[in-house]
Design a protein around this nucleic acid. Structure first.
Length: 499
RNA sequence: GCCCCCAUCGUCUAGAGGCCUAGGACGCCACCCUUUCAAGGUGGAGAUCACCGGUUCGAAUCCGGUUGGGGGCACCA
């Protein structure tokens, strides 16, 4: 066997644009990336779009954009979705490599490693159903291996077009998996499989082998769901006279019920997490630790630190549940590690246009340590862009009145605050001034500060949970604060008179 | 059904024969701080290392079996 370890190291990610970038694909891409960068190898992006019906340019764009967003870079591949597709080992979209696959399939036909299969999908489906009913392994029965000239003439007369099927050699295949060690499989258990459809388009197991060879890939790191497919790939590699790459199968990311992470049971698209306001740094840190750990108690790592520390030998064998609580925790850590300016920049698209850049920057100190996700800023800062009427619509006695107090009490508190703050000039509407004034009022009325602040908070923000009260008042400004206090006063006096 | 893979607190994990009466983190609970909520601080509950046999003076760590879970077996990737 060729000693692949002596070839320059080349790894690849091979997403299929038949859906948004999947969390699992992102993690596999990340591990490949960390591996390639750690060893100083070359990293290649190949688009696996052999399924022309399901592949879309939108999905390719989503995948490439999100890979970039995560900070994953590559040396070869289509750099821009829908863009040019050239490079030293290009093209990198499989739809642009069909001549190559046709030629390699022809070689297999010629050498007798593959044969034409005239069975229709319906016929195959019927056989499969019979096998399942008989509790047998569902695999091809080899019918087209034993065709007579008469059969052939008949198919031709019917106008049938043949698919090309690979004849799997009866042998035991072994390989040394980079994360699992020695794996053995008896290929006699496999049925011959299709490598080219009747319409001439090639299938995954075939193209992946051809491309990995032609692109000189030395290390194939992929999800564990492919470990059972590896013997097929090795059989193909041998039949085609290719060099065998090293294989490494990483554990799967799981749904809460421990099944393979799927769209039905979990949120799997990276775009969705991005839109919720997860930071790429947090996502990368989180994903890296789903199946790998540096062997120490450190847990916060930048991409560069991950590259430095990553080692396939420390990748786990068991699958890991996607734990959103932990992602949330990490996201909070990364959000709080940003400067106010950096955070304001990232928050821009999550906040209403009505809040200008200066406005965003001014709310940041108030909401920063309250954000789990960037999108949380919308609710936290809503009181700033909502009109006084909108805020007033949120008032109700339940919120306005502190526990153990009456509506009359709340009214008294609001009135006291209204009068005290009304005496201040707009220029004096600063958090520290507002706070000392309000505390003085609370003391004068014999209220605890906490109780006294509650009606004010609801009056000013419409909510019983809000960013720090006086900072919020400062941002709102004198006129709007007083208007809201007045509105709350009307509401509570009204309720008082009704009571 | 057959084959392959896996197995430490609810979750992510440390652990590569004695350092483990199993460590950290998330989550949970309590307290502190405190104008709400957070953030932060302190403490706590939480794992007979799936089970059963071996090997060994000694096993979470090595071996075998059992059980459980997952994955694969497409003219999807």
């Amino acid at each position: 066997m060729t000693r692949t370890s002596e070839r320059p190291i080349r790894a690849r990610m091979a997403p299929s644009p038949t859906g948004r970038l999947h969390i699992g694909t992102a993690r596999t891409s990340l591990y490949n990336f960390l591996f390639a960068r750690h060893v100083g190898g070359t990293y290649v992006l190949r688009i696996e779009d052999t399924d022309l019906v399901r592949s879309t340019e939108d999905d390719e764009r989503d995948i490439i954009d999100n890979l970039h967003w995560l900070g994953i870079t590559w040396d070869e591949g289509p750099q821009v979705a829908g863009g040019e597709d050239i490079g030293p080992y290009g093209p990198y979209r499989q739809r642009n490599r069909s001549e190559l696959y046709a030629a390699e399939a022809a070689r297999l036909l010629e050498s007798g490693h593959a044969y034409h299969c005239w069975c229709t999908p319906e016929e195959l489906e019927a056989v499969r159903r019979e096998q399942e009913a008989a509790k047998e392994a569902p695999r091809y029965n080899g019918r087209c291996l034993r065709l007579t000239d008469a059969d052939l003439a008949q198919f031709a007369a019917e106008g049938r077009k043949p698919a090309i099927r690979f004849q799997v050699p009866a042998e035991t295949v072994r390989f040394d998996d980079l994360v699992r060690g020695e794996v053995e499989f008896d290929n006699r258990l496999l049925g011959d499989f299709i490598i080219v459809r009747a319409d001439g388009s090639p299938l995954y197991h075939f193209v992946v082998v051809v491309d990995d060879e032609k692109m000189e890939i030395t290390h194939v790191i992929r999800g564990e769901d492919h470990i059972s497919n590896t013997p097929k790939h090795i059989a193909l590699i041998r039949a085609l006279g290719y060099r065998e790459p090293r294989f490494g199968h990483i554990p799967l990311i799981l749904n809460a019920d421990r099944s393979k992470m799927s769209k039905r049971k979990s949120q799997t698209s990276v775009t969705a997490y991005r839109e919720e306001g997860y930071l790429p740094e947090a996502m990368v840190n989180f994903l890296a630790f789903l199946g790998w750990s540096p062997g120490t108690e450190e847990e916060i790592f930048t991409l560069d630190q991950l590259i430095e520390r990553f080692d396939l030998a420390q990748v786990h064998k068991g699958g890991a549940i996607f734990d959103k609580d932990r992602l949330n925790y990490l996201n909070g850590i990364y959000i709080r590690s940003l400067t106010d300016e950096q955070l304001a920049l990232r928050l821009r698209h999550f906040l209403p246009e009505a809040l200008d850049d200066e406005g965003v920057l001014r709310v940041v100190p108030l909401i920063k340590e309250r954000l789990v996700k960037l999108a949380d800023a919308r609710e936290l800062a809503a009181f700033l862009t909502e009109s006084d009427d909108e805020v007033a619509a949120l008032y109700d006695a339940d919120k306005l009145v502190p526990k153990g107090r009456s509506v009359a009490d709340a009214t008294a508190a609001l009135r006291a605050a209204r009068e005290a703050l009304g005496e201040l000039a707009a220029a004096d509407f600063a958090a520290d001034v507002l706070e000392s004034r309000c505390r003085a009022e609370a003391e004068r009325l014999g209220w605890t500060a906490g109780d006294f602040f509650r009606p004010l908070r609801v009056a000013v923000t419409g909510r019983s949970v809000s960013p720090p009260l006086f900072g919020s008042m400062e941002l709102l400004g004198r006129d709007r604060v007083l208007a809201r206090l007045d509105a709350a006063l009307r509401k509570s006096s009204l309720q008082e008179s009704l009571a």
